[in-house]
Computed example of a mutant assay.
Amino acid sequence: DDDKVLSDSEQCPELSNDLAEAVDEPSKTFIDYNNYFDCAPSSSNTPIIDRMKQAYSTLCTIRKASEMSSLNHKVLHDQLKTGDMVLILSKYSMLIPTSQMFLCGVMNFARFSFEDYRKLNNEDRHSIVRHNFQLIQSLDGSYRAHHHFPSENTVMATYMSFVNEESLNNFFDDCPKEINKAFAIEQFRTNMKRTINMTKSQFLKTKPSVDEFIALFGLSIWNN
């Protein structure tokens, strides 16, 4: 069964020891592809947190490179020259390929980060990430939307692209003809407002450190 989840006794127990150590240590406030190039500490009191930060920044690097590959030639090279990642308006056709890539990346993140996950068979690895993928997407997208658009009603649709109220009508311009565009827009608007109210707003209130966010991201994989 694709939606099979593991029992509480089978879930990852590793994070609890690291969390107590991590919350007392100073941390930056945002993690993304740039952290891939940071040097890992030679020793640490929070080895699992450090592995997750390394795996997450690697995931960000892969997502960024994948989405940049679809940019216009000039736009791509302009961004490569400056070293910046310029956010773009999202469109419907971007969602499926970027979500599939993110799903694969999260499975690799978990495999790198957690010994308990590595011990699972492939079917269970897939099942546990797929079961929690909507939560993982919401958490990750809201975290980055809060960073890039802290005071705007904007959500991240993919790693590099965003949607807001002004762009929503055009977002579905390239959707398949069989999709009811008006209905899809209203559904997306409802989900967007829910994400802003329930998840993005919490980042505004709590302002988690990198270690705290990474702990949440890791725990979201094991959510039951």
Rank of each mutant, 00 (worst) to 15 (best):
A157D: 00
I136C: 10
P150D: 12
M160D: 06
R144A: 03
M156K: 02
Y143I: 05
N164Q: 07
R130M: 14
R144T: 06
P150E: 14
Y159R: 07
S127I: 01
Q134M: 08
T158V: 03
V129K: 11
S142Q: 08
M156W: 01
P150S: 13
H146E: 15
F162R: 04
L139I: 14
I128A: 06
F133N: 02
S151M: 13
Y159D: 07
F149E: 01
R130F: 14
N153F: 13
N153L: 06
L139A: 03
H148L: 03
T154V: 12
E152T: 03
S161H: 12
F149W: 05
Q137F: 11
P150G: 15
F149I: 03
I136M: 11
F162S: 04
T158P: 05
F149A: 01
S138N: 02
G141Q: 10
N164H: 08
M156H: 02
E152V: 00
Q137H: 14
R144Y: 11
G141M: 08
N132M: 02
R130S: 15
P150M: 13
S127L: 05
F162Y: 15
Y143S: 10
P150R: 09
V129S: 09
N164R: 05
I136Q: 09
A145S: 15
H147V: 13
G141Y: 05
Q137E: 15
H146K: 12
N153A: 12
H146I: 10
M160K: 14
I136T: 09
R130W: 15
I128Y: 05
P150A: 15
H131N: 15
Y159I: 03
A157F: 01
F162D: 02
Q134T: 12
Y159W: 14
Q137P: 08
